[in-house]
Design a protein around this nucleic acid. Structure first.
Lengths: 224, 224
DNA sequence: ACCTCGAACCTTGAAGAAAGCTTGAAATAA
DNA sequence: TTATTTCAAGCTTTCTTCAAGGTTCGAGGT
């Protein structure tokens, strides 16, 4: 579970990110608005926690811009003011929940769990990356720029599923072997290569702009 | 996770190393100062635990010498004295934390975890020097003044990584050979030169203002 | 100031090693 | 049967190493 925390007060962000990590989330921290906005677009997070008062770009701006770009990750806003107007503005511009400082960490965790649960249930069905959509129910891979579609065999599906849900990041052969085959054995890395090759053929067939880039010594990355 | 334990009391080092191994760390043990110092330079440890009272070279000397060589691994000092002066000397000379004997093993483990987390968090991501950014995850070198980017092969990456993390200082061929190839053999200095040459080509390609200066008889230095 | 010479340094290309890709055949599942 | 998965072999590309030859630098002598 990947979470992005956008917060400029160092003490606050250190404390919250630490707690989230203890809960088993993997946390990225951005300490100003623009960087946070960039991060939202680059990776796909399971949730975003975003302060309102930020240097660079304020919380409302980030959220509405992100929503305009089609980002669907759940977003929780934090603010020091308990002012009701802020609350309304926050939800209006596309945030999913709202918390006023100071808050109990327990409350944040609870709301986070709730949002992630809700979101993964809704999302579950379609995964998206660039001009690709992957239907996790029918195992169909759809290219939105050519309108072509093809059904993937199970292993290829798992490869694609993992690559898409980690778009913007480099995925190692080890991770893929673990996710797709359930074990982790260097001898099996060739299988990863074979299936990457198969999957690339499917992307070619679809005429997709998205491609699977190899990064020598590191792994693979989906690029749009 | 690799840890180096420098401790001359056999009973102590046996007990601590055993506990660390149970926690899943891989542990190297040195029982005297010089050997410990060598080990720090040879491998790259995720943390070093270092006693103060040691034959050969005392803890403070080890730490300050290691820091002078550009070692950035977190270091915890151990001492029998609870004397405050020692504590100050320890942190001054470059240690990250300090523990007085006798200590609870739990406390050592907790501090170790904290240091390792802090250290890997800071390291992973971006290293910066002048108009260069080095992404330590993707091995990409980015020039901020031209917005160009290129992926570095492993050895060139290590060269750059070491130069950047020692910017403002002269880095000897010996240090580079040790860091990049893991050994230290005059015959191999030509490899350093070859790779410096490769890396310079990359900087030229990027159009970076930063350059690798040669300082005859001394080594290399990054200049902006 | 200038010249000479050796040491330090740079560059290059060829050969080798390693990582990755593709393919087809054999095995297994549907 | 047909579709899918596994495995192994050979191929391509990229990175690394090594060695040879060229260039630059600076000390010591004229």
């Amino acid at each position: 579970m990947k979470i992005l925390l956008i917060e400029d007060e160092k003490r606050m962000s250190a404390a919250v990110s630490e707690l989230l990590r203890q809960e088993g989330y993997s946390v990225d921290v951005a300490d100003e608005g623009l960087g946070g906005y960039d991060a939202i677009l680059k990776k796909s997070y399971d949730a975003v926690i975003c302060d309102v008062m930020l240097p660079g770009m304020n919380g409302f701006e980030i959220v509405s811009a992100a929503r305009a770009e089609g980002v669907s990750s759940p977003i929780i806003m934090l603010t020091a003011k308990s002012d009701i107007t802020d609350k309304v503005t926050g939800l209006d511009c596309g945030a999913d929940d709202y918390l006023t400082k100071p808050f109990q960490i327990e409350e944040l965790l609870a709301r986070l769990r709730a949002l992630i649960r809700r979101n993964t249930k809704e999302t579950d069905g379609l995964l998206n990356a660039f001009d690709l959509n992957l239907n996790t129910k029918s195992l169909n891979l759809i290219c939105t720029s050519t309108n072509k579609e093809i059904r993937l065999p199970e292993k290829e599906f798992k490869i694609m599923e993992y690559l898409i849900s980690n778009k913007g990041q480099i995925v190692s052969k080890e991770q893929l072997a673990l996710k797709v085959w359930g074990y982790n054995n260097e001898a099996e890395y060739n299988n990863v290569e074979v299936y990457i090759s198969f999957t690339r053929k499917k992307l070619k067939f679809l005429g997709a702009k998205t491609e699977i880039k190899s990064i020598r010594g590191m792994g693979y990355e989906l690029r749009g």
